[in-house]
Design a protein around this nucleic acid. Structure first.
Lengths: 82, 82
DNA sequence: CAATTTTATACGCTACATCGTATATTGACA
DNA sequence: TGTCAATATACGATGTAGCGTATAAAATTG
């Protein structure tokens, strides 16, 4: 599944979804990444001050990757078609 | 163009490529985002400690978006086919 | 090559993520 | 509803991003 994430909240939501899909608790993910459970919690809740390193470490542990592309027009915004 | 970015260096490189495509200097991009030219420089050079907020602000200013997806197998790694 | 623009780096400062540890709150389920 | 697991939050400590400002180094262009 491909998640567009334009805000830190959307990034956090995508990570949480993936973690749950893998049946991991925040604590278990924290163990894999050497991050605290509290740090995982903050990231999933969309703290915009989180560090890139944190995001990347978590994504690696979850088998995720980032794609950077030109902002798509009208993605999920039906009004833009009119 | 779609850039896979698994490291902060790759993220930085994608941003730099896009900025140059738009014919912006780091200073001009900094003005748009209210970030210092030095901060843009650090981000483009792949500082892993950069904040999510910084990345997102820059991506918005450049008309970019993130996609989060399952790590693709064998992307650029021919050995994985054997 | 010289002049100019662009990018990288430095210093002291403030803000805040992350740490370890601990607890409070919430959620799931018998 | 009560118990246990999971998540959110708290505290003081430490590390470091980003700030303003300035300059050094590199790249561009005439």
């Amino acid at each position: 599944m491909e998640q567009i994430a334009r805000t830190s909240k959307q990034i956090g939501a995508a990570i949480r979804r993936r973690r749950r899909l893998l049946n991991l608790s925040q604590g278990e993910l924290g163990a894999k990444t050497k991050l605290r459970q509290a740090t995982i919690s903050a990231l999933e809740n969309g703290e915009p001050g989180a560090r890139l390193r944190t995001l990347i470490d978590v994504m690696v542990a979850l088998g995720l990757e980032l794609v950077i592309r030109e902002r798509s027009k009208a993605e999920g915004r039906i009004e833009d078609f009119f």
